[in-house]
Every structure is written in structure tokens, then in C-alpha cells.
Design a protein around this nucleic acid. Structure first.
Lengths: 191, 191
DNA sequence: GCTTGACTATGACGATCGTCATAGCAACGC
DNA sequence: GCGTTGCTATGACGATCGTCATAGTCAAGC
């Protein structure tokens, strides 16, 4: 199974990607941050940096998805939005607006020679949308509408985190969330 | 005033940032793409790469803002959304989903040693929001609501472009836009 | 004609990049 | 004992990074 150092490398990669992006994060940075041994990079990741990034994207995706799932068990539609947003609020504030979403970071600079990265990112986004849509469905939103709303939520929240980083302020996220909650509440009632 | 080569460098930088991001775009790439002479980089941009990026962000921001302004003269609320979205649709499709927003690209990997980049990006986002909000106001949306809606539109559309790049498909953008147009129409009617 | 200033050609600096080869370590089955 | 396997230490490869110094070109102004 996964060694300690191997898992630490993946976690550190995800962590560093959030702040410096894919190209901006070197292998040496990952080594330094994770404390993992330098000699075993290509033992654990024969595919090199691309493979490490791929696993970091999947790790971050799965990690956040668990959080969404846990918080969408209720029957309140707005709580589905809160679940997704709460994590990003924490990340932004605790990093003093230096960190964002690693999946976004990898997506906006993915090269043609590494289509796996886009694939992995797309899978993560899809998963988040599905989980959110399920939560909205439980709250009474019709399935078809729930899927479109979930997609809007993912897009708007990810976009809002970028705005927050630029402004170094959480207001953009709060403003966006206010509109989204209103929208989901209305959708749940009319459903 | 601005020399030819100088302006070409800024435009090329903005172009390349959209695909490869800030760290992923080297000065040599900008030179090769613009055809500008290598020797005059630090003549035109004493501040180095950071200054070039700063001007590229402002250039892209002003360029798109003109497009939004031109298309928000009408009194239809939905056209304000179309104006902002149309450009991104073109960029995505014509680049085969390799290119996104240069402002986002710079924002998600801005370092602590270059706060000018975040500032410039924030100014661009604000300008887009203001122009959009004005368009929504002309369509009958109350001012306060228009500001919040404009922010949602910018965030959601920017986020949707990221989703589109990951999926290599325009559907995420179309789905998001459908929801946004519905929302703005309702806001204009109730106003 | 001469000077000034804007712009460019060329080449190099040290640093860092991703990658990999080689050797060595510890733990295990036999 | 021995060999195999999983992991690490170390050092280096060529390429590319941002940056800059130096010399040169060229047009405009006096």
C-alpha cells in the first residue's frame, strides 16, 4: 500500500499547487515541504511530475467530496451550498488568500502533452457536482434542475475563490453564496 | 508612446498566459510568439516579468471590458450576460479548450513578492463587475441587486470556463449561462 | 557633422528545472 | 547463508529559467 512518504508527497503537492500552481511548484519544493526523501520520487511516481499532479488532483477531489457528502445528508437545500463553500472559506482565510483550489490551478495550465491532468480534473468536478446534486435532490429539487444547479454552484464558487484571492477578501465568496442560497431555496420550494 | 514590439509583447504575454499560465510562460516564449527583439525586454519592461504580466492583465481586462460595454447598451437584461459570455465561448472553442482567462491564470499563482499582480487582477474583475452591473441597471435591475448579480456572473462564468477546459466541452458554460439568464430576467422583472 | 536618446543584437550569468543512474540500505522468504 | 524486493542517498545530466551588461544601430535635433 501507500508508504508514508509517498502519501506525504501527494498531500504536499496538492497543498503547494493551491498556492503556486503546477508550473510554479517544483519537485524540490514538494520534497522540502513533505520531508520525503528525494531519491524515491521516481520510485513512487515513475510517471514523474505529471503522475504526482494527477494523484494530487484526485486526492484533493476525494478529500473535499467526503466533506460535501457528510454535510448534504440533511434536508435543507441551503446546507448543500454551505457544505461546499465552508471548505473554501477556511482555505482562503487560513492561507491569508494565498491558496485556492489545486484542481483549478492544474486545469488552467494543463499542457497538450499531459491530457491525463485534464481528465482527472474533469472527473473531480463531475464528482463534486454529482454529490451536490444528490444533496439538492434530497432537499426536494427535481433531478434535472439539481444537476444544472450543482454545476452552477461549482462554477460560481470556484470562480468566487479566484475573486477572493485577487481582492484578498472573502466578500466575493459571501456575495456569491448569498445569491446561490436564495436560488437553491427557491428551487427546492417550487420542486 | 508604445512601440510596436512593446505592444506585441504585452499581447503575446496575455495570449500565452491563457494557455500555460504565468510560471509556465517564459520570456523566450513571449519573444518567439511576438517576434519582438529579445534585447529590448528590459528596456520596455524594467520591472521584468512581473511588469509584463501586470500590463498583460490590464490589457486583457480593458480589451474585454470594451466588448462588454458595447453589448450592454441594450435594455435586455439577458444581453448583458451574453456580452460577457460570448467572448469566452469564442476563446474556448477557437483554442480547442486550451485557453482560458489570463487574469485567472495570473491570480491563481500569484506570489507574495508580486502583490501588484493581485492588485491588477482585482481591478480588472471590479471593472468587469461595474460594467456588467451598469448593464443590468439599464435593464431594470435595482442597483444593489445588480452589483451582487454582476459579481455572481463574473465568478460563475470564470469558473465555468475552467470546467469547460477540464471537460474540453462548452456544455458547462452553456448550462451555467442558462441559469444566469433566467436569474437576471427574473431580477429585471421584479425590479 | 555631431550628439543625444530610443531601441536592438548578442552573449552570458547563476540558479533552478525535471529527470535519471548508480549505489546502498533494511527486511524478508528460503 | 543467499537472493530478492522495497525504499532511499547522492550526485549529476542537459535544458531552461529570469536577468542583465555590453556593444551596436538608427533616427531626430541642434
Amino acid at each position: 500500500m501507500g508508504t508514508d512518504s509517498r502519501e506525504r508527497m501527494v498531500r504536499s503537492a496538492a497543498y503547494l499547487f493551491r498556492e503556486r500552481g503546477y508550473s510554479g511548484t517544483g519537485f524540490r519544493d514538494v520534497i522540502a515541504h513533505s520531508g520525503a526523501p528525494r531519491g524515491s520520487i521516481y520510485h513512487h511516481f515513475p510517471g514523474g511530475k505529471v503522475q504526482l499532479a494527477e494523484e494530487a488532483v484526485r486526492y484533493a477531489g476525494e478529500f473535499l467530496n467526503m466533506g460535501i457528502e457528510a454535510a448534504t445528508q440533511g434536508e435543507d437545500a441551503a446546507s448543500a451550498v454551505d457544505a461546499f463553500v465552508g471548505w473554501w472559506r477556511q482555505v482562503l482565510i487560513r492561507s491569508e488568500f494565498r491558496a485556492g483550489c489545486p484542481v483549478v490551478a492544474v486545469t488552467v495550465e494543463s499542457h497538450d502533452d499531459a491530457p491525463q491532468l485534464s481528465k482527472a480534473a474533469a472527473a473531480v468536478f463531475d464528482r463534486w457536482e454529482d454529490t451536490l446534486a444528490t444533496g439538492l435532490g434530497n432537499a426536494g429539487v427535481p433531478d434535472e434542475r439539481a444537476a444544472r444547479l450543482a454545476r452552477l454552484i461549482v462554477a460560481a464558487v470556484e470562480g468566487a475563490t479566484v475573486l477572493c484571492r485577487a481582492h484578498r477578501d472573502v466578500r466575493p465568496l459571501d456575495d456569491v453564496v448569498a445569491e446561490l442560497k436564495e436560488l437553491t431555496r427557491a428551487a427546492a420550494e417550487s420542486g
